[in-house]
Structures are given as C-alpha cells and as structure tokens.
C-alpha cells in the first residue's frame, strides 16, 4: 500500500487545512484560481513515481453589485416646517471588489402628498448608525463617494426640511440611489480592465445600482377645549344668585395624530366670583392649589393644570369651583 502513503503525503503537503471561506459577495476580485492535479503510480520494479500536472491560473473578475435599504422601521413622524428631518438608509457593497458608490437623493418621488426640501446627504462617518450633526460627514458627489470593501455596509442619512403648509397625515417619499462608480448597466455589462486586480468589472444582478425609499409622515395634533358650567344655589336649585356655587367643567380633546406636548389648561376666575380653595380636579382626582409636584395650581387669578404630553385621540377633564359673591 505504498500508493496510499504517497497520497496522504500529497494531501497534507499541498493545501492549507481550512476550507475557503465563502463571502456573501464571493471570492474577492483579483484572486487567482490556480489548479494543479497530481498523479502517483507504480512502474514495473515497484517504485512509486509522483508527478504534477501543468498549472492553470484563472483570475476572478470584479462583480459590481450594491443594495440600498431603508433602515427606518416605518414612517418617520414629522411636523409642518420641521428642519433636519432624518431618513436613514444602508448601502452594502454586495460585489466582490472595492468600489465607490455615487449617491443621489430624490425628494420629488411621485404618488405622495408633498416633496420635502433636501438639505443634504450625510455619511455616517463614525459608523454608529446615528445621525450626529457636526460629526458625520456631509456627502459631496464625486468628492467623497463611499468607498466600500466587499460586503461592507455604511449608513447614509438624507436630511430634509418639511414645507410649513403641510397638514396632518401628509406623507412624503424620499428615495436614495447608489450607483457603482465603475459603471452601471444591464447585468453582464463588462467594463474591460476596470476591475479590481486588473481584470474586468462586470455588472452583477443588481445592475450595479439600487435604490430604496424612506417615508416622512406629518403628524399634527390639535387641541379643542369645551367649557361648561353647573350652578348649585344655596336652596338646592340651580339659580345663579349670591352664594351659589358654580362648577366649571373644562374638557380638552386632542385630535389629529401624534402627541401634543406640554399642554396646559389655564382659566381665569370670573369677576364677581371667588375661587373655592382646593376645588381643582383632573380626571376626577383632586389637585392642590400650591405650585408643587402635582399638576394643578391656583395663582390667585387663574387655575392652571399641566397635562403634559397628550396623545391624539385622548381627552382630559379639569373641574374647579367658584362661589358667586
């Protein structure tokens, strides 16, 4: 079994032990595929001879491929006139060579309600996936096109301004396009000699360009306040006479969508009436008159109740009482 030992010698001597790691993008452009076969045999007399074949070398060309995906989980809520509105995209070099990609944002995509104004495209230069004004780099086409290794990704932020005249539920689509600098076209299009490693660059299945869209949705919450009064006279009736108690009922209704922030209900005590101390309630819970941790106060002129941030679709009911002088 001389041949067996010879074969084992081949195996261990000729190849590194690890299996080649297949990247998603495939073998890196410029890599040589070098193939040599070996043979061993016995000649009459019993000696074993081993010989190699010729070596065939083939170079792996560069495949140009890219994907763009929106990183936002859904619509980004915004408001009329808002600036620095951020849509986030991820660009991945799915080709097998180092490649720079030209970026174009389109805020005028059809089929939506409005077109935001493009402020700038920003590259996530610190790689944390978050828009950091002043830290991340503003993109300048042709100057700092993101240069990505095979399988490398980078986040791109498209920063826009919302027109002031938009209303609740208006929605805008913004798309980001990335194109391989070497070239784009139908899959299979070849750019001779332009591939990494000196081979050709060949357009892959993505066409060497890709785009995806993010969405901005205007959320505008509005508050309406309805005030009513109930009179209780000293005789158990409902006549407004000196000594009668008036209970004011203030209902704030938040409509539209989103959240209305820092809502405060304020109501002056009417002339010819006297505020009944500690009579403020919010959602039927009693509030103190002092300026303190609870939401209510009486400042001598007005009752003020801080409702905080109230989501659209909810109501808040405040009551207070006065006595007619």
């Amino acid at each position: 079994m001389q041949k067996l030992s010879a074969a084992l010698l081949f195996g261990s001597a000729c190849t590194a032990l690890s299996v080649a790691q297949a990247q998603a993008a495939g073998t890196v452009a410029g890599t040589d595929i070098s193939n040599t076969a070996e043979a061993s045999f016995q000649v009459p007399g019993g000696s074993t001879v081993t010989i190699p074949s010729n070596t065939v070398v083939i170079t792996v060309d560069e495949l140009l491929d890219v994907t763009v995906t929106s990183s936002d989980p859904g619509d980004i809520s915004t408001s009329p006139g808002a600036t620095d509105q951020v849509l986030t995209f991820q660009i991945t070099n799915t080709g097998n060579g180092q490649e720079a990609f030209r970026l174009t944002a389109d805020t005028a995509v059809g089929g939506d309600d409005f077109d935001p104004t493009l402020q700038q495209i920003v590259i996530d230069s610190d790689g944390n996936g978050l828009y950091d004004p002043g830290i991340d780099t503003v993109y300048v086409a042709g100057s700092n096109d993101p240069d990505l290794a095979p399988d490398e990704s980078i986040s791109i932020f498209v920063i826009t301004t919302i027109p002031a005249d938009r209303v609740d539920t208006d929605r805008a689509e913004v798309s980001l396009l990335a194109e391989a600098n070497t070239g784009t076209g139908a899959p299979g299009t070849s750019f001779d000699g332009l591939g990494q490693g000196g081979g050709d660059a060949v357009v892959g299945t993505t066409g060497a360009d890709d785009d995806d869209s993010g969405f901005l949705a205007v959320q505008q919450a509005l508050v309406t306040l309805v005030k009513s009064a109930t009179v209780l006279d000293p005789f158990g009736g409902d006549q407004a006479v000196p000594g009668s108690t008036i209970t004011y009922n203030l209902v704030a209704t938040i409509s539209g969508s989103g959240v209305l922030n820092n809502v405060i209900i304020s109501d002056p005590i009417p002339t010819s009436t006297v505020y009944i101390p500690a009579s403020i309630t919010l959602e039927t819970a009693a509030l103190t008159d002092a300026t303190d941790a609870d939401a209510g106060e009486f400042d001598g002129t007005n009752i003020n109740v801080s409702l905080g941030n109230v989501p659209a679709g909810e109501t808040r009911t405040v009551t207070f009482e006065v006595t007619i002088e």
Binding site: K3, A6, A7, C14, N35, T36, A37, E38, A39, S40
Partner: peptide
C-alpha cells in the same frame, strides 16, 4: 503503470 492515483487539491 499500475496503482495510478490522481489527486486534485
């Protein structure tokens, strides 16, 4: 030639 073995890494 006998016991021919061809190996291709």
């Amino acid at each position: 030639a006998s016991n021919l073995m061809v190996t291709n890494p």
